[in-house]
């Protein structure tokens, strides 16, 4: 599964970083950095939660 980020929707609130810190990190400018575009084996649940928990619906998963 790949993580797809819609930059137009993302406002850098950081819920995803809170849920899956090894995959998402907000930078100094408030921009989200996806640290691993491919969902890591050991972080499937957290990433799914992060995608579903995004307040601006900026994340989705693509097979």
């Amino acid at each position: 599964m790949r993580i797809v980020l819609d930059r137009a929707k993302c406002t850098g609130i950081g819920i995803c970083e809170a849920l899956a810190p090894t995959v998402f990190e907000v930078d100094d400018h408030g921009e989200l950095v996806v640290l691993s575009a491919e969902v890591p084996e050991d972080a499937q649940n957290e990433v799914t939660e992060a995608v579903e928990g995004c307040p601006t619906m900026a994340l989705r998963l693509q097979p």
Binding site: G12, G14, E17, A18, P21, E25, V26, D27, D28, H29, G30
Partner: peptide, 12 residues
């Protein structure tokens, strides 16, 4: 304040 990079690390 404008510390987006920091907040979640401390929250953890």
């Amino acid at each position: 304040l404008n510390g987006q990079r920091h907040v979640m690390k401390y929250r953890r």
